[in-house]
Design a protein around this nucleic acid. Sequence first.
DNA 1: CGGGATGTCATGGGATAGCATGGGAATTTC
DNA 2: GAAATTCCCATGCTATCCCATGACATCCCG
Lengths: 158, 158
Amino acid sequence: MAFRSEILIKLDKKGRVLLPAAFRDELPADDRGAFVLYHSPNLSGVVNGNSRAGFDAMLDRLRAEALGPKGALKVALDDEAFDPAGYLSASARTIAMEPDGRFSLPAEFASVLEVSDGVMLVGKGDKFQLWNPGRWQARRDTDRDKMAAFVRGLGGDA
Amino acid sequence: MAFRSEILIKLDKKGRVLLPAAFRDELPADDRGAFVLYHSPNLSGVVNGNSRAGFDAMLDRLRAEALGPKGALKVALDDEAFDPAGYLSASARTIAMEPDGRFSLPAEFASVLEVSDGVMLVGKGDKFQLWNPGRWQARRDTDRDKMAAFVRGLGGDA
DNA sequence: CGGGATGTCATGGGATAGCATGGGAATTTC
DNA sequence: GAAATTCCCATGCTATCCCATGACATCCCG
């Protein structure tokens, strides 16, 4: 299960978006009809996506990291403390697809993406992202330079 | 079964609130007609909600983890000892919905929420919450900063 | 090896179903 | 018997179902 490639998908006048077959194929075989979209926790204007299982697994790891194994009961009761997993849950929505792989993009996501006629779907391995096509272009250009610098900076030449 | 997303729901002049379909769908298939509301144990102005099964499971965990197997028996007999699960039960109410998913919000909850024409329903994964829309906005803003700080604080920057 | 056939993918759009909400009427409650 | 609660119908809107199309890619058989 690894999301790869970047694909530009039309946003039609009904507000529908197609989850490309390349991404659908990465969803668990027993849960192909729905997935999860959630706002990026620290990058405004970006929406993340994953399978339900992938999203839940991330929340589990997050809770373990934030609280340790004994914190589960506390977090279930303590409404005052900050709960990162709860925060992400609130920013997430389960999205059901039509049999052909299309879904209607909820307005809350369309507005932060500021998309009107096209959405860039970007595979990130263990998740995927939705971007405004123009913003993705800019991001990709700066990432290309950072990647080159990163590779240059890898040890090995000694 | 995981409650996600935040949805603003009207409180009509009869005092009725709709449990959104996204939340109804998370209720157990064999118990779709009712759920539980209870006051937050430590955050005034917030009301928690869950399925009857989810609420009961939390109480069980609370009794088991907080008191141990012997404590559970003790609490069943000892009316003098403090029983956190019993305390929560007293603050809880089973809410029956109409077939279309609406319910009338009991006055005791409406008053602590201080809502008059809208209630914010917030999914927290294992449970959901009812908030005064304005107060939720404020809480969400501070949580956003805490989330960014949390992400920044995760190791691995090295 | 070529070209028709088939299949899948991304997209468009009409028709229908379901959701959130409002409000009248019947029923309960004290 | 007056106020609150519950039942039921109505409505606008959005999402979903379902059918259709063109562009590719793959397959198959001579």
